[in-house]
């Protein structure tokens, strides 16, 4: 029943991904990435992970794309959008296909028992996150804080304080 929907979001996700790695224009790559990430939110909805779908749209579709577009703007990448690909790109295709072959073969070799997806619902995720997973939750918030402080220090103008 969800097959047509799955096919549509899978095509959008993979198409967006291929656009990211194939386009010559950096801004187009960012927009393709947005398409791919929002389609991934659709995949989360298909497996009843509605909280993750919401987070995906907010964090990836909102924050991360904005940050990447800031990076493009501040490094003036659009003035020289044609930083060509590595000359080793045929090797990269071979490596990608090889890894995909191994992964797909291992997934299809031993099929998991057939089961229907089921979501736990928002309340249970929240409860589990603040009881069983409380310590990792606090640690990851500290990681985020340290990373952002570090980002400000690294990107800050050198010689302001010294």
């Amino acid at each position: 029943m969800s097959e047509p929907l799955f096919v549509i979001v899978a095509i959008l996700t993979l198409g967006g991904g291929l656009g990211v790695v194939a386009t010559r224009n950096v801004v187009h790559a960012a927009l393709f990435l947005l398409l791919s990430l929002v389609s991934v939110a659709g995949i989360y909805l298909l497996v009843f992970a509605e909280f993750l779908a919401l987070v995906q749209v907010l964090i990836y579709g909102g924050a991360i794309i904005i940050v990447l577009i800031f990076a493009i703007m501040l490094t003036r990448s659009q003035e020289y959008p044609r930083i060509s690909d590595n000359p080793q790109w045929p090797l990269a295709i071979v490596a990608g296909l090889a890894v995909f072959g191994v992964l797909a073969a291992s997934f299809l070799w031993n099929l998991p028992p057939a089961s229907e997806p089921e979501g736990p619902g928002l309340a249970k995720i929240g409860e589990s996150l603040f009881t069983k997973w409380a310590v990792p939750f606090e640690v990851v918030s500290l990681v985020l804080l340290v990373a952002l402080v570090g980002a400000i220090i690294i990107a800050g103008r050198a010689g302001d304080r010294e």
């Binding site: 790695v21 990448s77 296909l97 995909f100 992964l103 997934f107």
Partner: peptide, 26 residues
């Protein structure tokens, strides 16, 4: 797996740091 390998190709084949970052996101 397919999306992962598309990202892998991007990381290996691209030369712009911003594009490599996008491939890592994939």
């Amino acid at each position: 797996a397919a999306l992962f390998c598309i990202g892998l190709y991007g990381v290996l084949a691209r030369r712009s740091a911003v594009l490599i970052l996008m491939s890592i996101e994939l």
